[in-house]
Design a protein around this nucleic acid. Structure first.
Length: 547
RNA sequence: GUCUACGUAGCUCAGUCGGAUAGAGCAUACGCCUUCUAAGCGUACGGUCAGGGGUUCGAAUCCCUUCGUGGACGCCA
């Protein structure tokens, strides 16, 4: 599909070549929609940007380009030079209205593009320990990761959505002991929760579930009983996580178990390889890895003096398995508290002879929970944190999904529960959903039988703005995917909704006096509806037909 | 202390591959429903883009620095 700005870029590049014998890459040419409408439909700063390369002053270059550009080929109606050397384009009207038929044809496929060039990419997000409920930090990662992978898929990346299950190590042993204590309590036995045990209500519920299914068969503590609680605990916690995530419209293609990586001997293999390469030494009874040779600020322990491995080793092995599965790019979405961990992981990948740049880590800044203007501290252990499940019940999945994705990932973010609960116009998700419902309502109440012959009657300023912005959708999708920034989609949604509402205020759609114009406007609305629905889908928000 | 992010309107935030007069929502003030959903639209008010220096024809955007805020600096994950 040849979009307007691509046509413009090509024509400009061709004109530069013809007039100045200079080759410029199409991607280096910038086309934008000017904020000021008097500056035309589209504008470019090409003459300024390339004035050095071309070796002339911007106004002269701009004039030459205006004289050289093939207007017909790019559907340009007129051009004008402004300011320091901007070229402003006014487009032939049919080049703007053409998008309507494209959108109506493509439907749910509108927005799909091949900018990702089928890059095999693995996105790992959430990866919460199966030891408790998902809290707000996980929720941000879940909403962001899921929306990002939707964007990537729409942009033609070959995406795998992955969840790493930490089902080995201290914390799951702790889970087993906590679970056993709760279980024993049910049968009237005085067993205290471990000092650093999991106090969450989910552990209690799972204990009850086990008690119901197995009765008192596991009351006498032993290694075997411990392993039973560990296995059952992980299974049931994981089931619950998956349920909560699915309810939050977040799904995964692959769940990789840490235990399975250990069982396959990959942990030992990684250590051996590092040893063979000479990056490993013993000190204080522990086995160290010289990550400083790869840019880390100090060496890290691989095997503790009690003989067990630090979490780093299975993580290294895990990331190697991703590379072995053929991913050209791995993206980890990690909480800000893990940021010191990135150099270690990258160092390890490099030490093992792989390209550390295939791993990119997007850091998720902290979410603070604010209620009635006061910060609520989150504490998973004490069981008083607001969980993802509660949040969804409180504010609804739509509002929660929208809120978490609305702001850039690297900004600190206060989730105002009070505001999110309000369900008034203060909440931006309603503004967008209302626009969609309004469109549906107009389409429902239409009595126009006539079909649009073409779109020559769509000449109102509000109509043209709406058309231009609908046309932008594919570009915005590709750009948001490239930057892994679904918040850009929220901005798009808000502006599209605003343009529609503004159009609605200025133009009556259903008008039996002007059936042909009505028919054309109805098609414009259908295109707008599809675009809005697809945009909302990308961030996991529903597009209601009625409100 | 070291590392890492952030600091834009009264509030919450967009804008950051450098471009024209820095945008939106909320709040405030004033208009708009005998007309397709007023959960809406329009107008007004509101800014030393944290401070300073530098690069550039041009900086909120890039570089340096100071201040402020959050987070990380475990043989926890």
């Amino acid at each position: 599909m040849s979009t307007i700005d691509q046509q413009l870029k090509q024509s400009i590049a061709k004109a530069i070549q013809e007039a100045f014998q200079v080759d410029v890459a199409i991607e280096d040419i910038i086309i934008e929609i000017p904020k000021d409408k008097s500056h035309g439909d589209y504008a470019t700063n090409t003459a300024m940007k390339f004035s050095k390369v071309i070796g002339n002053n911007p106004r002269v270059i701009a004039q030459t380009l205006v004289d050289t550009i093939d207007k017909e080929a790019a559907s340009i109606a007129s051009m004008e030079i402004a300011g320091p050397g901007f070229i402003n384009f006014k487009m032939q009207s049919d080049s703007l209205t053409r998008v309507i038929s494209q959108v109506l044809d493509l439907g749910d496929r509108y927005g799909y593009n091949d900018s990702g060039k089928a890059l095999k990419i693995n996105c790992e997000y959430v990866s919460a320990n199966p030891t408790g409920d998902l809290h707000l930090g996980h929720a941000r990662g879940a909403a962001w990761g899921d929306s990002t992978t939707r964007l990537l898929k729409m942009s033609g990346y070959d995406v795998t959505r992955e969840f790493y299950v930490n089902d080995a190590g201290n914390q799951v042993d702790n889970l087993a002991r906590s679970l056993y204590a709760r279980y024993a309590n049910i049968f009237g036995q005085q067993v205290d929760l471990p000092e650093d045990g999991y106090h969450g209500p989910d552990v209690k519920e799972i204990a009850e579930e086990i008690a119901k299914e197995y009765g008192d068969a596991y009351l006498t503590y032993s290694d075997e009983v411990h392993n039973f609680f560990k296995k059952e605990g992980i299974r049931l916690e994981l089931e619950k996580l998956k349920r909560d995530l699915k309810n939050f419209r977040v799904e995964f293609d692959v769940f990789t178990s840490e235990q399975s990586i250990r069982d396959a001997g990959l942990v030992e293999k990684a250590v051996e390889t590092l040893d063979t390469l000479g990056y490993v030494y013993e000190k204080d009874g522990a086995l160290w890895f010289e990550t400083t040779k790869f840019g880390d600020d100090k060496d890290r322990v691989l095997r503790k003096n009690d003989g067990s491995y630090t979490y780093l080793v299975p993580d290294i092995a895990y990331h190697i398995t991703k590379l072995d599965r053929g991913f050209e790019k791995m993206v980890d979405f990690l909480g800000a508290d893990h940021h010191g961990y990135i150099p270690r992981l990258k160092a390890s990948i490099e030490a093992l002879g792989r390209d550390a740049d295939t791993l990119e880590v997007d850091i998720i800044q902290m979410v603070r929970l604010v209620d009635n203007g006061e910060e609520v501290k989150m504490s998973k252990r004490l069981g008083n944190a607001i969980t993802l499940r509660e949040l969804c019940e409180d504010v609804g999945v739509d509002a929660a999904r929208y809120f978490f994705v609305q702001r850039a990932l690297d900004t600190h973010f206060d989730f105002d529960v009070n505001l999110a609960k309000k369900q008034t116009n203060e909440n931006p998700v309603f503004y967008a959903q209302y626009a969609h419902a309004r469109i549906c309502s107009i389409l429902r109440s239409s009595t126009i039988d006539e079909k649009a012959e073409n779109y020559d009657l769509l000449t109102h300023e509000k109509e043209l703005e709406l058309l231009k912005y609908i046309h932008e959708f594919t570009n915005v999708v590709a750009d948001a995917a490239k930057h892994r920034a679904p918040n850009k989609m929220c901005n798009y949604i808000q502006k599209l909704a605003a343009l529609f509402h503004s159009f609605y205020g200025a133009c009556k759609v259903i008008d039996n006096e002007h059936p042909q114009r009505s028919a054309q406007r109805l098609d414009l609305l259908r295109a707008c509806q599809i675009t809005l629905r697809n945009a909302l889908w990308l961030i996991g928000v529903e597009a209601p037909e009625k409100m």
